[in-house]
Nucleic acid binder design. Structure first.
Lengths: 181, 181
DNA sequence: ATTATTCCTGACCGCTCGGTCAGATCCTGA
DNA sequence: TCAGGATCTGACCGAGCGGTCAGGAATAAT
């Protein structure tokens, strides 16, 4: 047992990241992944309980970092500290761009839940802080759209009554997309 | 025949836009749309030949405008004109944010096609032009991510041998997501 | 009243999806 | 050599998907 056997598991994650990034989460079937890995579909479900579990495993590092960062940012008034946090936030988004790309395909069902308001506040704070670094209106717009399009990431690992749900959600993107008039 | 009856058709488009924006294209079934509209699934397919046709109808205005804009931008060297075009490009993206949001769910299969190179050049020009307006490195990054995340839109209405394919594709977003090392 | 046309529907089809399961195969330690 | 856990698989399942079709219902034209 000295060396744990995880080669297949790693390969699954590598291929899944590739295909999720290319075709989206819903656009990638277990069959697709299995074929690319060169194993059976059942093998995937031996290593990962559900399809969702593959996505969760992929985004776990980015998710943890974002949790820390947002938590750190939550109780801070000092502008310098906040700016530094925002900078780290953006860097982190770029570093984890592969995982972040997956986010777009996550169903944003949480958005209607009341618990989501706090998250929206934090995102608004991020937007305001980042946009505040430049007086140029175009840059502010850029910042907003930046955060809306990519950095609008959020944490929610809530899973009630055995129902599995992805952990990352798009936030500000919806803020830019108002409901029907 | 004086007044053409298109109320149901419009309602389908309205609901589809809402649901596509919320849950993504693949995340929205014909059943979902029909239930929300209050008609049968078959009615959807009476008004629109395929599910794809609904998406195509929704993004047609944004697509036409983008075609015009990119075409206008293609043969221009003058910096002022180019900047104005870029500004219009961004405005247009914001104006059509609802339609643009749909894009994320479009399968990016075109990206490997050779005909896509010209489009990538244009996108790169857009990125360079926009980023060049600010010397701040962070702003350049913002611009790149902006264009990568939202404005990375492109035109392709190619449809060969009866196979229908969506008309808009994400471009630079993929440029930010390199393949495996 | 009658056609003709447009609009709409329930029933149905083939297919792919995520997921289950019993059992084959491989590996490792005693 | 053998026992036992870890790994892997083909066959199978129910559900949901996009799409088809014959025909009913409403509307407009004659």
């Amino acid at each position: 047992m000295s060396v744990v056997r995880i080669r297949t598991r790693d390969e699954i994650l590598r291929v899944a990241a590739e295909l999720f990034t290319r075709y989206g989460f819903k656009g990638t079937s277990l069959h697709d992944i299995a074929a690319e890995v060169g194993c059976s579909k059942a093998t995937l479900l031996y290593h990962f309980a559900h399809k969702d579990a593959i996505l969760l495993a992929l985004i776990e590092p980015a998710r943890q970092s974002l949790i820390d960062l947002v938590a750190r940012l939550a109780g801070v008034d000092d502008k310098g500290v906040r700016d530094a946090a925002i900078e780290g936030f953006v860097d982190l988004v770029l570093r984890y761009r592969r995982e972040v790309a997956l986010i777009y395909d996550v169903t944003p069902q949480f958005l209607q839940e009341p618990a989501f308001d706090r998250v929206r506040e934090l995102t608004d704070a991020l937007v305001a802080g980042f946009a505040g670094r430049s007086a140029d209106l175009a840059d502010q717009t850029a910042a907003k759209v930046l955060l809306a399009g990519i950095a609008a990431v959020v944490i929610d690992d809530k899973r009630d009554e055995g129902e599995l749900r992805p952990a990352l959600v798009v936030v500000a993107r919806r803020a830019l997309i108002p409901g029907k008039d």
